[in-house]
């Protein structure tokens, strides 16, 4: 079976599926977009895909807390299927609302191994939605982030992105994939460099295997260098994160 199938999961109110799919296809994946309903009807279909992406948006309106309904669906309708996907060493990426879903369903970071929610993403300190570009420090020791430069810029756009946790310093350094930094590159707890007040300046985390990544910034929104927000030449780093996934699947799966 072709291993380059990727899946973008769409719930009612998901709204970044097309641009995410656009990048996946251009990177080389055979991408499909399936609705949560279609997957519930045929959960085995997940086995077809090496890479599952939960894109941004407002799944089911996020009316009762961001990502909650989809994470409930994962726990109560698709739990075994996701466990199998992870056990097979396949990849998962959650962007923005997707990150919230991964965290609340217990899939990420799952350090205890019992699939319970361990961390959370809560309302920004400003208590409102915010769209801005941020500078990020990259932990390059993950499948998704290797060969990125030390620092990258990406846009964030969310109302509930404040990452909270109770891990010790060493553990969170290891789990952290992206950190909000100030202009000089120092991890920042100050607004607006850290746009939401995240603990330890966390913008994204991976699990212990590095195969599940969740991040608040939107890599799919930096696909062309012309999208950069000021006059400085910067490569579209967003694409690299997806390319790394492709490379991993090609070489390791």
């Amino acid at each position: 079976m072709d291993k380059f199938y990727s899946l973008v999961i769409k719930a009612d109110g998901t709204n970044c599926e097309l641009e995410t799919s656009f990048i996946l296809k251009n990177v080389g994946f055979k991408n499909e977009i399936l609705t949560v309903g279609e997957i519930i009807q045929d959960p085995k279909i997940l086995e077809k895909f090496s890479f599952i992406v939960f894109p941004g948006g407002f799944s089911y309106g996020d009316y009762t807390g961001s990502g909650r309904i989809v994470s409930s669906i994962i726990k109560h309708h698709l739990f075994e299927n996701f466990q199998k996907h992870i056990k097979d060493g396949k990849l998962i990426l959650g962007i923005c609302n997707g990150f919230q879903i991964l965290v609340k369903s217990g899939l990420l970071p799952n350090t205890s191994g019992n699939w319970q929610q361990e961390v959370s993403l809560i309302f920004n300190d400003s208590f409102h939605y915010e769209d801005r570009w941020v500078k990020l420090l990259v932990n390059k020791n993950t499948i998704f982030t290797k060969n990125l430069p030390d620092y990258i810029y990406l846009p964030v756009a969310h109302g509930e992105g404040k990452f909270i946790h109770s891990f010790d310093k060493e553990k969170i350094e290891k789990l952290g994939a992206f950190f909000y930094v100030d202009e000089k590159g120092k991890k920042s707890m100050d607004y607006p460099q850290n746009p939401n007040g995240s603990f330890d300046s966390i913008a994204g985390i991976v699990d212990d295997t590095g195969k599940i990544l969740g991040m608040m910034p939107h890599p799919e929104r930096f696909r062309d260098e012309k999208q950069f927000y000021f006059d400085e030449k910067n490569d579209p780093y967003g694409i690299i994160i997806f390319e790394n996934a492709y490379r991993y699947i090609k070489e390791e799966l």
Binding site: N15, E130, D131, R132, H218, R221, Q227
Partner: peptide, 9 residues
Amino acid sequence: RQYDHEVQS
């Protein structure tokens, strides 16, 4: 800032 002005990329 409160408006998402970049969705759809």
